[in-house]
Structure formats: structure tokens, C-alpha cells
Amino acid sequence: MTDDGNTYQGSAAIERWLNRPAAEFAYTIHLTDAQETDTAHYTATPHLEGNFPGGRPAGTQSHFSLHPRR
């Protein structure tokens, strides 16, 4: 994946990118849509704005699977 002018390859690099300090940027996030794709899968669409590189509002989608606790 590419973000902030850098390319992150492999699960370890992407995990480090995900775990960097949240205080690095000021941002707001608002859920703009959520869809149930089937009984166990959902897609959430947030709107993200902040002082991150590029400064443009960003739209992303996250896909979730729900599984019962065992």
C-alpha cells in the first residue's frame, strides 16, 4: 500500500504503519455509510479529514466479518 509518500509492502510493514502513533496527526472521522453484505459481513465507509500529508479529505471502506464467540 502507499500512504504519506511511502510504499509499505508485506504484512509486517503494513502493521508498523497501522501502529504508528495516532498523535502524529489531528483528524476527525465520521461514519457516512454502513452496509450489510450478508448475515455475517459488513462494509463501513467513513469520511476522514485531518492535517495528514496531502490534507485532502479521504474516503475509505472497511470490510468486517462477524463471528459468534465460542
Score class of each variant (00 low, 15 high):
residue 4 D to T: 02
residue 4 D to P: 00
residue 4 D to W: 03
residue 5 G to D: 03
residue 5 G to Q: 05
residue 5 G to K: 00
residue 6 N to V: 04
residue 6 N to P: 00
residue 7 T to F: 05
residue 7 T to M: 02
residue 8 Y to S: 00
residue 8 Y to W: 12
residue 11 S to I: 12
residue 12 A to T: 08
residue 12 A to P: 01
residue 12 A to W: 11
residue 13 A to F: 06
residue 13 A to G: 02
residue 13 A to W: 03
residue 14 I to E: 11
residue 14 I to L: 15
residue 15 E to K: 14
residue 16 R to G: 03
residue 16 R to T: 10
residue 17 W to V: 00
residue 17 W to H: 06
residue 18 L to A: 12
residue 18 L to Y: 11
residue 19 N to S: 13
residue 19 N to K: 13
residue 20 R to H: 09
residue 20 R to L: 07
residue 20 R to S: 03
residue 22 A to W: 10
residue 22 A to N: 09
residue 22 A to M: 12
residue 22 A to E: 12
residue 23 A to C: 08
residue 24 E to N: 08
residue 24 E to I: 02
residue 24 E to R: 09
residue 25 F to N: 08
residue 25 F to P: 00
residue 26 A to E: 14
residue 27 Y to V: 03
residue 27 Y to T: 05
residue 27 Y to K: 07
residue 27 Y to S: 13
residue 28 T to F: 07
residue 29 I to V: 13
residue 29 I to W: 11
residue 30 H to A: 13
residue 30 H to W: 06
residue 32 T to E: 15
residue 32 T to S: 15
residue 33 D to Y: 08
residue 33 D to S: 13
residue 34 A to V: 15
residue 34 A to D: 05
residue 34 A to H: 04
residue 34 A to L: 14
residue 35 Q to M: 13
residue 35 Q to P: 01
residue 35 Q to V: 12
residue 35 Q to T: 09
residue 36 E to D: 11
residue 36 E to W: 13
residue 36 E to T: 08
residue 36 E to Y: 06
residue 37 T to N: 10
residue 38 D to Q: 03
residue 38 D to K: 03
residue 39 T to I: 06
residue 39 T to S: 13
residue 40 A to I: 06
residue 41 H to D: 05
residue 42 Y to A: 09
residue 42 Y to L: 09
residue 42 Y to P: 00
residue 42 Y to F: 15
residue 42 Y to I: 09
residue 43 T to A: 13
residue 43 T to R: 15
residue 43 T to H: 09
residue 44 A to P: 00
residue 44 A to Q: 03
residue 45 T to F: 10
residue 45 T to V: 14
residue 45 T to I: 14
residue 46 P to M: 06
residue 46 P to E: 03
residue 47 H to P: 01
residue 48 L to Y: 10
residue 50 G to V: 02
residue 51 N to F: 07
residue 51 N to M: 06
residue 51 N to S: 07
residue 54 G to N: 08
residue 54 G to P: 02
